[in-house]
């Protein structure tokens, strides 16, 4: 298995986790149950989301042969899903970051901030939607399947929920209803991920061109998949364990999140290695 698309692995996994967490925490903020100091307490560690976004975008430029020309990637906005993805991702990064900064500094009215938050959340959804379409290429039979959006969505849900849990824990908001719901959401997503991964692996048997079979693209695909699923199971176990012991909760959640990133990056790298075209 090659790692030649590692910059894209980092970009997509980190961005999906960041967007997922932002939307979940944003929803909490929009409910109006967080006010004043507690809002700002939660807002502070959300810096991690923007750090992840920063790393993601930095990594994405490594994928380019001519990084200095990166702005050219926006030239086909509206026509190319990659242009759309980069545009929406950047806008999400900018407006979400602005919201975070205004909240940190407690500037402008809460209503305006909520409007900004809502827009940023919508941009996050649009960003994720664009990413999916970048890979839904009709000539790439191994990508152009429902498993691509499903896989990307599940990364957002699992990663987003766990990251949100970690941020809530770091901000001392672990008693919130959302915090109680997140493990259920995460557990559900992980179980669905386990099931769909197996279904996906089985679906590969039906994809072949004259010169390539999807099942032959990645040597030891099944073993690598089992490693990923085992990692995800460990993630879930650590996650649930963290919620029982309050003492080292952020630390254990953090470890769980790191393992989740490893699992999802492994899975994403498998995805990139499954690239083949319908032809040569």
């Amino acid at each position: 298995m090659g790692w030649h698309e590692f910059p894209l692995v980092i970009f997509t996994v980190l961005a999906q986790c960041a967007v997922g967490a932002f939307i979940l925490l944003g929803a909490l903020m929009l409910t109006g149950r967080l006010e004043g100091a507690s809002l700002r307490r939660l807002n502070r560690p959300m810096l991690i989301i923007w750090i992840l976004m920063g790393v993601a975008f930095a990594a994405s430029t490594l994928h380019l042969g001519s990084p200095l020309r990166a702005p050219n990637a926006l030239l086909r906005l509206g026509s190319s899903w990659l242009s759309n993805e980069i545009f929406l991702g950047s806008l999400f990064f900018a407006l979400g970051g602005l919201f975070w900064l205004l909240t940190l500094l407690d500037k402008v009215s809460p209503l305006l901030r909520k409007v900004l938050l809502s827009i940023a959340m919508l941009l996050g959804v649009a960003f994720m939607y664009a990413t999916i379409h970048v890979y839904m290429i009709p000539t790439v039979p191994t990508w152009n399947t429902p498993f691509t959006p499903l896989g990307f969505f599940l990364t957002s849900v699992m990663g987003g929920a766990l990251l949100a849990q970690l941020l809530l824990s770091l901000s001392g908001q672990g008693q919130r209803l959302l915090a109680q719901l997140l493990p259920w959401l995460g557990a559900l997503a992980i179980v669905v991920a386990l099931g769909t991964s197996v279904a996906h692996a089985m679906s590969l048997a039906g994809i072949q061109s004259a010169i390539q079979s999807a099942v032959d693209l990645v040597p030891h695909y099944q073993s690598l998949l089992i490693i990923r699923l085992a990692l995800l199971a460990t993630v879930l176990a650590l996650w649930l364990f963290a919620l029982r012991s309050m003492r080292h909760q952020p630390l254990v959640l953090c470890a769980s999140f790191v393992l989740l990133l490893a699992a999802e990056m492994l899975g994403r790298n498998l995805f990139y290695n499954l690239h083949m075209t319908a032809g040569l």
Binding site: G65, S66, A70, N72, A73, L82, I137, T139
Partner: peptide, 14 residues
């Protein structure tokens, strides 16, 4: 103009 993102190479079936 090309930024070297290789998207075209991924998509082209030839």
């Amino acid at each position: 103009t090309c930024i070297g993102c290789k998207s075209c190479a991924m998509a082209c079936p030839y």
